[in-house]
Amino acid sequence: MKIEVTAGDGVSILRYKSERLDAHNSEVLKLKIKELFEGGAKNVLVDLAEVRFIDSSGLGALVSGFKNAVAYKGALALSGFQDQVRSMFELTRLNRVFDIYVSEEEALAALTGKK
């Protein structure tokens, strides 16, 4: 599993480069998001374009990220949902909690106010 982080234009982008986000690897993502907010990031975008499978632990890692965003007065956005990821967010109604964008580009435009 690989996580790529790039920072720029007021947004830290975290790209999760693996097909599965489950109980085996969600802790790494959770800690990485926390680390970004602790390090002073205000806007964090997690791109899940490569994820074709997420479970409740993966959702939990993102909920933890959302809570960190609130605690540090920042924002966490998500992008690049494949079908299974979208349906898991809908099933758990977490789609009502997160700001979700179709693509990284759309999310960046919204987060940087350059829409």
């Binding site: 939990g60 890692a61 909920v63 933890s64 959302f66 809570k67 758990t92 109604r93 009502r96």
Partner: peptide, 9 residues
Amino acid sequence: PEQLEEHGR
């Protein structure tokens, strides 16, 4: 499930 808990889904 609507409670923003990290676990329990």
